[in-house]
Simulated scan of single mutants.
Amino acid sequence: MDMVRILLADDHEVVRAGLRSLLDGSEGMQVVGEARNGVEAFRMACELQPDVAVLDVSMPDMGGLEAAEKLARECPAVRILALTMHDDRAHLTRMLEAGAAGYVLKRAAADELVRAIRVVAAGGTYVDPTLAGRMLRTTSPARGTRDVPSPEALSGREEEVLRRIAWGQSNKQIAAELEISTKTVETYKARLTDKLGLRSRTEMVRYALQQGWLSDG
């Protein structure tokens, strides 16, 4: 098993200590750094290049949302997992749009956090089960997934691109893994918008959840 290198970012020292103890005690995981705010998290993530940055959403100086946006833009190889007390759909949606590949509530069981980190590190998307169900229940018929065509309406390559977008991969990553140009990836995304009406990554994540594509990352 490859070692998963993790950066922790939370402004509460006691929380960080507890998380470090949990994760360092989990097989195949190593905490390589700790940050007290978003500014430190961004700097350390770019320097240390961990596999996963676990970000609290609410931190001083720079919150998890802004840190996630900067990391997704400037250090795209670092996968982002939000660990937060905010259990509302608005925070979840904003973090996914910012580039987070996972969202877990602080009240979740320890083994759920460990599982989420493994899924995100492996290239998948993980949404707290409670919020995943809420995303599906609150999808609007006008722009959501209830009235869009089934996956059979997509070509094999279109479905592959959609899955990878939902998993949190960037256009550059998708292009490299599928051995196509980033311009071709953009063309496929435009086709997905035309066929399914999914105009944002959050809507694509909802669709992927409904299809069961994110169950195990």
Rank of each mutant, 00 (worst) to 15 (best):
G28K: 10
R36W: 01
R79T: 06
L48N: 08
A82S: 12
R73K: 14
Q49F: 00
L23Y: 05
M62A: 08
P76E: 10
R43E: 13
V57P: 01
T93W: 01
R79N: 13
S58Y: 02
D56W: 07
D24T: 07
D87T: 07
D51S: 15
M62G: 02
L55C: 12
E74S: 11
G38D: 09
R36N: 10
V39K: 13
A41I: 06
M44Y: 13
E27R: 15
L55R: 11
L92M: 12
L96K: 05
G63R: 04
V39Y: 03
T93L: 02
T93R: 15
P60R: 09
V32N: 01
L81N: 08
A67E: 06
P76W: 04
G63Y: 01
D51L: 13
D24E: 14
A90N: 06
T84Y: 10
D51P: 12
V78R: 00
A82D: 01
P50N: 04
T93S: 07
Q30S: 13
E34L: 14
M85D: 05
Q30W: 00
L81F: 12
D56T: 04
R94H: 14
R73N: 04
G33A: 14
E47G: 10
V78C: 05
R73W: 01
L55G: 12
A90D: 14
A41W: 06
A90H: 12
E40I: 11
M62Y: 02
C75T: 08
R43M: 08
H91A: 15
